[in-house]
């Protein structure tokens, strides 16, 4: 039993790294995704289609591959190795964050776009007929509808991101997975360290869900839940 406790304490050394990878990539990814989605919505046609194709490619490539390209490939490029960019890309931790944020941007921008285009046209018309400006219409009619429509897919996406952070250990980042894997290699005890790490990930996911739904209830919907309405 005390062995398990030792394992747990050792693995928990990676908790801070996992959480910071997760939260920083989430925030950067969301900001970039909002910009990308706004750009696509604002400039339909060739601009939107090119951006969409680029995002499609990012979504279509395994995260592990992107991690390897950035971590092993970028140091070969002189303009990265010999400039200020090297301070970022020399760190496996920041490589991982950049890759995670990049992929998060590609998925989240599509969720944001989808939520935007699901906004009922009637809500927008009601706002415009009351004389509201474009921005006011966005605030009262479009944004709440986007929150209602995008909440469920975005929650799923956030949870996937949380678990994707575990890939960072493949480029030497010592997160929860990194420590669990080290114990496994050292002791040849396979189940215990990995299952303990698994439990910690589940806890993080449960707490993340709680935080998201609390935030959603705070900002989006008063009265009855959206699915109660015809």
């Amino acid at each position: 039993m005390s062995v398990l406790l030792d394992y747990l304490l050792e693995i928990l050394q990676g908790l801070g790294t996992t959480l910071s990878l997760f939260v920083i990539a989430l925030v950067i990814g969301f900001v970039l995704a909002s910009a990308v989605a706004a750009f696509q919505i604002r400039f339909p046609g060739i601009v939107a289609r090119s951006i969409w194709s680029l995002m499609f490619c990012i979504r279509g490539v395994p995260l592990l591959l992107i991690l390897y390209v950035v971590y092993y490939g970028f140091p070969l490029l002189p303009f990265i190795r010999e400039t200020v960019l090297w301070t970022v890309f020399a760190s496996p931790y920041w490589c991982a964050i950049i890759c995670l944020a990049f992929v998060e941007m590609a998925f989240t921008s599509e969720i944001i776009r989808g939520a935007y285009y699901q906004t009922p046209r009637e809500q927008v018309e009601a706002a415009r007929s009351l004389g509201l400006s474009g921005f006011q219409t966005f605030r009262v009619a479009i944004l709440p509808a986007m929150l209602r429509n995008g909440f469920a897919p975005y929650t799923t996406e956030v949870i996937l991101l949380c678990k994707s952070t575990a890939l960072a250990f493949t480029i030497t980042v010592m997160d929860l997975m990194g420590y669990a894997n080290e114990i496994r290699a050292r002791t040849l005890d396979i189940y215990h360290p990995l299952l303990i790490a698994g439990c910690i990930y589940i806890c993080i996911v449960v707490i993340t869900r709680l935080i998201l739904s609390t935030l959603f209830n705070l900002v989006a919907v008063g009265g009855t839940a959206p699915e109660d309405r015809a």
Binding site: E122, A126, S129, L130, V221, G222
Partner: peptide
Amino acid sequence: RKKVGMVFQQFNLFPHLT
């Protein structure tokens, strides 16, 4: 639009506001 009010078939109230 400031002088003309409009009422729609589907009411179109903002569901998240009282």
